[in-house]
Amino acid sequence: MTETNSKIQTELLEEPYEPTIIVFACNWCSYAGADLAGVSRLKYPTNIRIVRVMCSGRVDPAFIMKAFLKGADGVLVAGCHPGDCHYLEGNLSTEVRVKNTQEAFDILGWETDRLRLEWISASEGKRFAQIITEFTEQIKELGPIKKR
């Protein structure tokens, strides 16, 4: 009896793993997309923390590194579709930077799946919700970051 009691207790106490995901969303497309998702009352996991940037090209590899060091489990960089950038080609440089950062993670021997780049336009509220759901599932599967 006591055994089952303690079992129930630990199960109740043990909270399921909820990852923290930082989303860098560009002001003109992806943030508006997130807005639309909210206005349309679409459901998506609450694990994300959105950081609005004027352009996804503003996101430096150092920001991504720092997010992970400060305890994020995943980072999503979201920008306008290629060709739609408010600043003409900011998102193209983002593509290069995120690719470089992923390559650097490979060199360091770390999981590249924790960093993702997506193009989300202002009209794609549904896509935003879908990507967030998908990415959260993916991070949940990867589990928490193992610090040394």
């Binding site: 430096d60 150092a62 590194m65 060091l69 650097a104 970051i145």
Partner: peptide, 23 residues
């Protein structure tokens, strides 16, 4: 310089990764 990326990488290597760099 460079938004501190190289020193962040050093800290990253110390705290997060279990192996050395791959070449």
């Amino acid at each position: 310089a460079h938004h501190n990326i190289f020193n962040l990488i050093q800290i990253f290597m110390g705290e997060m990764t279990e192996s050395g760099m791959k070449f």
